[in-house]
Amino acid sequence: MANITRSPWLLHYDGSSCNGCDIEVLACLTPVYDAERFGIVNTGDPMQADIFLITGGVNEQNIPVVKQLYEQMPEPKVVVAVGVCACTGGVFKDCYNIIGGADQAIPVDIYVPGCAARPQAIIDGIVKAIGLFQERLENSEKESDKVG
């Protein structure tokens, strides 16, 4: 059973992006790019998600939503910021209602650049996230072994 690993589930939330990255994230999950071949499954439920894909920067109103979604996810978890807005705020950085990238609200592990981020780049980010997730999973299992 050593080569059977858990399939990480993926949760997508649109911070305050322009939609460009969101439709590219969706494009990644549909036939042509099909990121599900890497073993991930798209879900709408944060409580069952392992990888959190966030697009767009954060603003005053969605900061609590983003934080809540992140807290609802079980440990271990990985956060991927997709698109330049989620990384730094992008073109909207100077807008009055943008606080900054997603890392202003939650710890971000992987940054995917682009405006809009290309599916290839998003898949790359997802694959990295899967690797990081497995690593964290193994670490947490080791720790629970020690305790047990």
């Binding site: 649109d14 911070g15 305050s16 992006s17 767009g56 920067g57 603003n59 109103q61 969605n62 939503v65 073109v91 909207f92 100077d94 807008c95 009055y96 209602n97 943008i98």
Partner: peptide, 14 residues
């Protein structure tokens, strides 16, 4: 609404 409000119209100043 307001979860995605950025204030794009204010960028004309910059």
């Amino acid at each position: 609404i307001g979860f995605v409000h950025r204030g794009l119209e204010s960028l004309i100043e910059k």
